[in-house]
Amino acid sequence: MSETSGAGDPHGERSLVLQRQRRLKWRALDWLEAVLMMLCGFTLAGFCAAVVCDIVTRTIGAPWLWLQEVTSTFFIYGIFIGAAVATRRNDHLFLAAVGEFFTGRPRLLIESAIRLVVIAVGLFLAWYGYINFLRGFSSFRMPSMTPIASLYAAIPISGALIALFAFEQLVNGWRNGFESALADDAANDARETPS
């Protein structure tokens, strides 16, 4: 379902700023990746804590009814923040990467097309997510009566970040070459693959 690292951690996958495909990234945006990764940890920890409190308060017979809204807030923001930062780290789930079989100009075209699609999806999520966010002010979460817009807001934020990170890769790919960026990783892989 999702790629997870285990013992070994060849690319330092757990580090807050991933060094894989370094040449596709601007150093100036590294702080953003680090902050988003920390937010991933924070939302997950908050989510876990809220679920634990929910169980405990329910078991002792004094349930905090608003906890479920807190839980879903952490859960939803965690998903959309994670989806954004995974774009910069290239951690998403892929069906295949036809591009790897090509070099030169076709490769450049394919890699660029991929980023353009992702930018389009990101901008789509940002703009229509914003319209959906505005709609969300007239629908309320029960029982606190908070507008559901408070949750919908996660989507346009995520969309804008997705578009930004795909744009970053596109510009750096054109400047530094997509292939050479990946070749660095292949060299690293070769060094670390146990023989």
């Binding site: 329910r58 017979g61 349930p63 009814l65 479920q68 029960m142 029982p143």
Partner: peptide
Amino acid sequence: ATPTEDTMFPAYGAQIVH
């Protein structure tokens, strides 16, 4: 999860869960 149920069931002495 409505204010009505949140008021009535505790009034009957029940504990509510959403």
